[in-house]
Write a protein that binds this DNA or RNA. Structure first.
Length: 767
RNA sequence: UGCGAGGUAGUGCAACCGGCACCACGCCUGGCUCUGAACCAGGAAAUCCGGGUUCGAAUCCUGGCCUCGCAGCCA
């Protein structure tokens, strides 16, 4: 189920143009400093999904460049989670540290080429020299050190001669770049630190901006997909690959970095730091606490990989930062479990019901299928039934509200898969209902005797046969939708009811000995999983994965309050310099432009706005002047203002073959009605490309406007005949289709049909 | 503030070259039902704002507004 997102669009384009010689290769590059969470799952599904789709194996590569923060515990859990999600990265994961030798060699190359230098500034000095968002940085005093000296120093760094923090290796790019990432970024820092894989071999470690592009290039990655916050790093990514020549060295095309929006979810947090805090401060039982958005937590909660992958599919991939409604995840989980979880009976808070009409000691074996008919799966189990049964307290009401479909005094309900029973008597103690006495309706299993009025269906277990279970009811971790946006500590908004342990639950005997990790639906209650950690023979522990959807609006609890506290970050930014100002400045510098602005509106009948746009630079204005010979100046101006920029793309006017006289001729032809607007745009595109003469193109291709009723009517009839269904919809009131018909006719004429004539004829035919 | 990215129903995501605003979750109605589930049918609900180009603008031009990211020897 390949969804077409913007990344796959890029890949398709690259495949068409042969950019990477037909190869597609992606990677997932986690830093082993925490457990994977649902946000990573989105990225994993994206990268591995693309790999699967294009038949290439996706690399799992650990970005292990900072030994101080990383741990083998995480590399193991990450591999386990990726495999559990259903993805294959081969026998071995890869490691950035495997490329340390080559990275170092390339660093020496950079130094030799004068593109990197060793800087002895302190951390504070480096920050200071870097400047700020508004001021450019200043060169470090060490920036122009001799190549030989840099080389010697770099080798001393590598040899471990220098203590931590004495110096760093920096790329020599541009200290005044407006993109801060380009202000001589750090490549290597000294860290006398033991590394899990390279041991004590290296006292220096590369930084992300250096290690990451090199790792991608070495592995022959074609599309390096990362999150939005790395957009500013892309020029640096490209710089490293270009100036080290690493791709060429390995015989690969250069990888392309593409950024997408990371996943955010309601009612939870996603940053590793905050998750770690929840674990360390004991707000949850560990990384795999079922309330955690970690893969491990969701697994223990009972989410299956299928559900997580479906979720990744559902939310799509885009460049807009957005927060996904956690209900979508729950939908995917239910949708998945609905197909696979056998249905069984269990009561959370038992209320004893004695069936006075049922003989003491008599047990009947009822049977119930594991799946409802629409799932279409086989299997059934027996359910013992006796004089004493247990139902859920929630299924009885002394004073039932309107529409209540459960048990109440005098009412009759169906016991799921069993008899109908009627509540005869309520046993109360201290004003509390402690038990019920009821009678069964004879011969009501599988049928309803005439005259019996059944209020609803209720789940139950036999008191004598049921097995006890500990049930853990999980709910969202936070009580507010955006815990990270509040002013204070995130722990202040933790949901106090995110875990409720129900000790006295009773489930049907078939659940005795259920396998840890197995999924069940307790009918009318929810989906549950047998806890993989705490459940053992003789002690059944069930985690509620997700509730059943509940569409009963009768007494539905009020929806969680939508706390809106967006003011926290609603600081308004000062306005930035607009393009108007740039044009105004240009006119200040160049009196010719200023004169043009002053003179042209009255001289040529231009609007102030068009005049402004035409006089921001010389070439645009020159083009205008050269073009107005044959055509009306205002029309030429409109064309330059509206049609030139999209035709230009990133090019400068001077880089195209477009000339003023040719443009004038085109506009004149259009004004004279010789050609239509759409045709003019096509011709214009070609003029920009090749410098063709518009008259020649029009004549040679026969692009003259068609206004002849008969010719157009023929096309109209053809279009209406080919879209009979749409015509019916139109007659039925869908008038928005009018534009569709007009568009089809104009396309049918290759854009040559006079639009007014088309409109008139379509209108005639349709009425 | 310099630079970069972005703004389509409540939510998420589409609409290649200007021509039917798509789909899904959620919500509301109804149907079916021995799960108030599932399933089926129907419905309400959106192009950030202003101006312009065009027969026609979510899409092109233009002005504005709003949001996010960048000043770690983190990634």
């Amino acid at each position: 189920m390949a969804t077409g997102d913007f990344i796959r669009d890029i890949i398709e384009d690259d495949l068409r143009t042969g950019k990477h010689a037909g190869r597609v290769k992606t990677r997932f590059p986690p830093e082993p400093n925490g457990y994977l969470h649902i946000g990573h799952a989105k990225s994993i599904c994206l990268n591995f999904g693309i790999g699967d789709q294009y038949g290439s194996r996706t690399n799992l590569r650990f970005d292990d460049t900072n030994p101080a923060k990383e741990d083998v515990e995480y590399v193991e859990s990450i591999q386990h989670d990726v495999r559990w999600l259903g993805f294959d990265f081969g026998e071995q994961a890869l490691y950035a540290s495997d490329y340390f030798d080559e990275m170092y060699e390339l660093a020496e190359d950079l130094v030799r080429a004068g593109k990197a230098y060793v800087d002895h500034c302190s951390e504070d000095e480096i920050r200071d020299y870097r400047g700020s968002l508004r001021e450019p940085g200043r060169p470090s005093p060490y920036r122009d050190r001799a190549v030989e000296e840099n080389l010697t120093l770099l080798r001393r760094m590598r040899d471990g001669d220098l203590p931590d923090g004495t110096c760093v290796l920096r790329a020599r790019i541009d200290m005044s770049a407006s993109n801060m990432k380009l202000r001589d970024p750090l490549l290597y820092r000294i860290r006398h630190e033991h590394h899990d894989r390279t041991g004590d071999a290296w006292p220096i470690y590369p930084l992300y901006d250096y290690a990451h592009p090199l790792s991608d290039a070495i592995e022959g990655i074609t599309h390096s997909i990362c999150t939005l916050e790395f957009e500013n790093n892309r020029p640096l990514y490209d710089w490293v690959i270009e100036h080290t020549g690493v791709s060429e060295r390995h015989g690969f095309s250069r990888p392309q970095q593409i950024e997408f929006a990371r996943l955010k979810l309601d009612y939870t947090v996603m940053s590793k730091r905050k998750l770690l805090l929840l674990v360390e401060d004991g707000h949850v039982s560990g990384w795999d606490d079922p309330r955690m958005p970690t893969i491990a937590g969701m697994r223990r909660r009972g989410y299956r990989p299928e559900a997580i992958r479906a979720f990744a599919d559902l939310i799509g991939v885009a460049k807009v930062n957005s927060t996904v409604d956690i209900g979508k995840l729950e939908f995917c989980v239910r949708d998945d479990l609905n197909q696979v979880a056998p249905r069984v009976l269990g009561v959370l808070r038992p209320l004893k019901v004695t069936l006075t009409s049922w003989p003491e000691g008599e047990v009947e074996e009822l049977t119930g299928p594991y799946f409802p008919a629409d799932i279409g799966k086989p299997g059934e189990r027996t359910i013992p039934f006796g004089r004493e049964i247990l139902i859920d307290r929630d299924d009885f009401s002394l004073d039932p509200p309107a529409g209540y479909q459960r048990l109440a005094p005098g009412r009759t309900v169906r016991l799921r898969h069993g008899y109908a029973i009627t509540c005869d008597e309520v046993v109360e103690e201290d004003g509390e209902v402690v038990a019920l006495r009821a009678s069964h309706v004879p011969d009501s299993v599988g049928k309803t005797p005439a005259g019996v009025d059944i209020s609803g269906v209720v789940h139950w277990v036999s008191a004598a046969h049921a097995v006890p279970a500990e049930v853990r009811l999980y709910d969202r971790l936070f009580s507010v939708p955006r815990p990270e946006e509040g002013a204070g500590d995130i722990t202040e908004t933790l949901n106090p009811d995110s875990l409720e342990v129900v000790g006295g639950a009773m489930v049907e005997p078939s659940l005795d000995g259920a396998k840890p990790g197995s999924h069940w639906q307790l009918e009318r209650v929810g989906y549950f999983v047998v806890d993989a950690v705490d459940s053992e023979p003789g002690r059944l522990v069930l985690n509620r994965t997700v509730t059943l959807r509940d569409s009963w609006t009768g007494t539905a609890e009020a929806p969680a309050p939508q706390v809106q506290e967006k003011s926290a970050k609603a600081k308004t930014r000062p306005p930035k310099k607009s393009r108007v100002e740039y044009r105004a400045e240009a006119r200040l510098r160049d009196p010719v432009l200023a004169d043009r602005l002053a003179a042209w509106p009255s001289a040529y009948g231009l609007s102030e706005e068009d005049a402004d746009l035409l006089t921001g630079d010389r070439p645009t204005g020159d083009l205008f002047v050269e073009a107005i010979g044959a055509a009306t100046p205002a029309a030429v101006a409109r064309w330059i203002v509206n049609e030139l920029p999209p035709a230009l793309g990133d090019r400068e006017l001077a880089d195209t073959a477009l000339t003023g006289p040719a443009l004038g001729a085109l506009v004149a032809a259009m004004e004279a009605g010789e050609i239509t607007g759409p045709v003019a745009k096509d011709v214009f595109a070609e003029m920009v490309e090749t410098g063709a003469d518009p008259r020649t193109v029009i004549a040679e291709r026969g692009l003259a406007q068609v206004s002849d009723d008969a010719a157009i009517a023929a096309i109209v009839d053809g279009v209406l005949a080919a879209n009979a269904g749409k015509v019916d919809e139109y007659s039925a009131g869908k008038t928005a289709l009018f534009g569709f018909f007009v568009g089809q006719v104009i396309k049918g004429s290759q854009g040559k049909a006079n639009p007014q004539v088309v409109q008139r004829l379509v209108r005639d035919r349709l009425s």
